[in-house]
Design a protein around this nucleic acid. Structure first.
Lengths: 214, 214
DNA sequence: AGTCGATTCGAACCATGGTTCGAATCTCGA
DNA sequence: TCGAGATTCGAACCATGGTTCGAATCGACT
C-alpha cells in the first residue's frame, strides 16, 4: 500500500491522551504490550507488508478499529516493535562490552542473545530487519539505534584484534558479515523445525567466532 | 497490495503469442531482456513491494500498459528475475563442484561470484531474496532452484570436511550462515559507497572460509 | 440508579497500484 | 502505396487494506 497520506502518520493512538486512574492506566499499558506482542508475531509470520491490520487485530483479540485506540498507525506498531527489540539487543551488547573475560566468549554471548531475541516464539523481535518499510522520520530513529548496536559489536571485534585474540581484519566488514548471518535466520528458521534453537546458537557461535581466530 | 485475483496470475504477456518474423522476434526478445534488467534494478533499489509497475515502466522507457505486452504480471517479472539470477549462481556453483584444487579456493570463487551477481550495477540479481513475495506456484519453482544452489554449496563444504581440509561441523548450519552473510549484503551494500566491491569480496571470502579451517 | 468518559466495534471511506480497455500508431510484406 | 497485424499508450477499472466514523457498551465514581 505505501500510503503517503501527505501528512506524517499519527504517532499515538487516541487512547494515549485519556486521563486515567492508576488501575485503568495499568490495564491500558498491559493491553498495549499484548497488542505489540501479537503484532510482532504476525509481522514475523507473514512479513510487514503482507501482515494486515485485520490480521494483527485478530491475533490480539480485538477489532481492527479498536487497534487505533492503542496505536496511531501500522507504522507506529512496527516502529515500537523494532525499538523495543533493539533496546534488548543493545542491552546485551553493552553488557558484553563491559564484561571481563576473553572477547571470544563475550562475542558468543551476544550472538546467543540476538538469535534468541529474534527467533524465540514468545517475542517476535525480528521485526527490526524491515527497516525500509518505515517512513523516513521513524526509520531514521531506528537506524540510529541499530547503528549503535552494530558499533557495539564492531568495538568488540576490534578489541579482540587489538588484544591479539583475533586475527587482523576489517572489523566493519566482518561485523556486517556476522550480522548478515544472524539476521538472515529470521528468513528460514522456524521453531519446531529440525534444528533446536540451542543447536543453532551453538553452531553459529562456533562458526562465526572461529573465523576471527588468528 | 497482494492481489489474489482468485485465478492464477497470467504467466505470459500478450505479445508472446504473436507470430513474428526473425527480425521482429529478435527485437521482441531484446526488449524483454531490457525490461527485465530495468525491473531488476528497480526491485533492488526500492524492494519488490515498494516498486510500482509505473516505476519499472519509467525505468524501462515505456508505458505501464505496454509492460503487459511483454510480461503477464508483476509476479512474472519478479519470477523471471529470480530464475535468471539463480541460473547464473547455479552455474558457478556447479563449476566449482567439478573443478579441481583445494576446496577453500573453490569456495572463495563461489562467494565471489554470488556477491558480484547480486551487487553489480549492471544486473540486479538480488531479487531472489524476495521469495516470499511470489504466489505459491511460482514460489515453489524458485525455492526448488534455490535449494539446488544451497545443496551445491553444502556439498562443497562437506567435501572439504571429508578431505580434512575443513574442521568437522554441521554443514547445513554453516552453509546457511554463509548464505545469510552473503544475501544480507543486498540490504546494505550500495555501489559507490565506501567499500569497493573487490574489497568486499575479498574480506567476506577471507572471513567466511577462515571459519571452516580446522 | 445515574452519569460521564473510557473502550469497543461494524461499517464505511478512500488512496494506492496492479491490471485491463480501446483506440491510435508503427512496421513490414505484397 | 496499402492493409493486416504488431506495438504503444492514456485513461479507466477495481480489489486491497490502512484508516476514520458514529454509535453502542462497559466501568468507575457519586
Amino acid at each position: 500500500m505505501v500510503r503517503i497520506s501527505n501528512g506524517r502518520s499519527k504517532t499515538t493512538g487516541d487512547g494515549a491522551a485519556r486521563a486515567r486512574g492508576p488501575r485503568a492506566d495499568r490495564r491500558f499499558r498491559a493491553r498495549q504490550r499484548d497488542i505489540l506482542r501479537a503484532a510482532a508475531a504476525v509481522f514475523r509470520e507473514k512479513g510487514f507488508e503482507a501482515a494486515g491490520m485485520r490480521d494483527i487485530a485478530l491475533a490480539a483479540g480485538l477489532s481492527a478499529a479498536n487497534l487505533y485506540y492503542y496505536y496511531g498507525s501500522k507504522d507506529e506498531l512496527l516502529f515500537s516493535c523494532q525499538d523495543l527489540a533493539l533496546d534488548r539487543l543493545l542491552g546485551a551488547a553493552r553488557a558484553a562490552g563491559k564484561a571481563a573475560g576473553p572477547v571470544a566468549e563475550r562475542l558468543r554471548q551476544v550472538i546467543d542473545v540476538q538469535l534468541r531475541c529474534m527467533l524465540e516464539e514468545l517475542e517476535g523481535g525480528a521485526a527490526h530487519l524491515a527497516v525500509d518499510a518505515l517512513p523516513a522520520p521513524l526509520r531514521a530513529r531506528v537506524v540510529r539505534k541499530r547503528d549503535r548496536y552494530e558499533r557495539a559489536l564492531r568495538a568488540l571485534v576490534r578489541e579482540g584484534v587489538r588484544a591479539g585474540e583475533f586475527a587482523p581484519c576489517d572489523p566493519t566488514l566482518v561485523t556486517r558479515a556476522m550480522l548478515g548471518a544472524l539476521n538472515w535466520t529470521a528468513q528460514w528458521y522456524r521453531a519446531g523445525g529440525p534444528t533446536p534453537l540451542d543447536a543453532l546458537c551453538a553452531g553459529f557461535a562456533d562458526y562465526l567466532v572461529r573465523g576471527l581466530r588468528p
